Simulated scan of single mutants.
Amino acid sequence: MIQTIETEVKKVVMQYQELLKDWLPTHSSIAIAQNDTYIYFSSTNENFQLSVGTPVLKESIAYRVLQKNSKIDAMIDSTLFQQPYYGVGYPITLSNKPAALIIILPPSFQFPQVEPLSFLTGKNEEGWFPIALEDIMYIESLQKKTWFYCKSEQLTTTITLKELQLRLPSYFIRIHRSYIVNILFIKNISRDMSSSFQLILKDGTTLPISQSYISEVREILSF
C-alpha cells in the first residue's frame, strides 16, 4: 500500500513539474500534504528543512489549501522552513483523497507587481501624518503593530511588514523578520560579539541581520 502511494506521488510530481516548467523558477521546492502531514518534499534550499511525516501547521499554505480546497498563494512570515517564503498551493487528489501540492519559490523570486507606495501615513498622539518614503529610516514590527521611524519621530501604521515588502521601492530591504531598512540611511555593516552581521544607521541605531536574510542582503548590498 505504501509503495503504491509513493509511486502515485512520484507520478503526480512529474506531471505537475512538466506542466509548471514554463514558469517555475530554478531552485523552487515542492511539497505534497495529505490529511495532516507532508507525504513528499523535494528542495535544493538547505534552509527548507522539511521531511515526510512532518505535521501540517495551521500557519502554512498547505493547511489553507486542505481546508478550503482551493488555490492559495501567499507570503508566509511564520514558518517551519526557518525563513519566510512565498508559496503557491493547489488542491489535488491522491488515492481518491484530497491533498495539497505546494510550490515554494526561491528567495530571489520577484513578487507579483502591485501598485508601489510613495508615502506612509503614520499615527501618533497628535494625529495622522503622511510621510514620504525617502524620509523613513526603517520599519519595525513590534507587539503586533507596525512602526516606522523618521529622524526623531516614531509613528505607527496599519500596514503589515508582509504587505509593505510587496509595495516598497527597491531601496528598502528586509533584513529580519521584524525589520525593513531604507538603504539610504545605512552608515555601515559590521559584526557583533557573536559574529552575526548588523547594520548601523546614520543616527546610530543598530539593527540585526538575521540568518534567514543574510544571503539576500549580501547580494543586494554587494559585500
Rank of each mutant, 00 (worst) to 15 (best):
I2F: 13
I2A: 15
E6R: 09
E6P: 09
E8N: 05
Q15M: 13
Q17C: 11
E18M: 07
L19H: 08
W23P: 09
W23V: 08
L24G: 09
P25G: 08
S28K: 04
A31K: 03
I32V: 15
I32G: 05
A33K: 05
Q34N: 07
Q34R: 08
T37F: 11
I39E: 08
I39R: 07
I39W: 08
Y40M: 11
Y40D: 01
S42V: 04
T44R: 13
Q49A: 11
S51N: 15
T54G: 06
P55W: 11
V56M: 01
I61T: 00
Y63S: 09
Y63D: 14
R64H: 12
R64W: 13
L66H: 10
K68F: 10
K71P: 07
I72V: 11
I72G: 11
I76H: 11
F81D: 03
Q82M: 14
Q82G: 12
Q83C: 08
Y86C: 07
Y90G: 01
A100N: 03
L101G: 00
I102D: 07
S108G: 00
Q110D: 08
L117Q: 06
L120N: 06
T121I: 11
E125L: 15
W128G: 05
P130A: 05
I131H: 09
E134G: 12
I136E: 00
I139R: 02
L142W: 07
K145I: 05
C150H: 12
K151F: 09
S152T: 15
L155C: 11
T156K: 09
T157N: 04
T158Q: 10
I159V: 14
T160V: 12
T160E: 05
K162T: 10
K162A: 13
E163W: 02
E163C: 02
L164E: 00
L166M: 04
L166T: 00
R167Q: 14
R167S: 10
L168E: 00
F172P: 00
I173D: 03
I173Y: 00
H176W: 07
S178Y: 02
Y179T: 03
Y179M: 02
I183G: 04
L184V: 02
F185N: 00
I189Y: 04
D192F: 13
F197V: 09
Q198P: 12
I200W: 00
L201E: 03
K202N: 15
K202G: 12
D203T: 06
Y213Q: 06
E216T: 14
V217E: 01
R218H: 07
S222V: 10
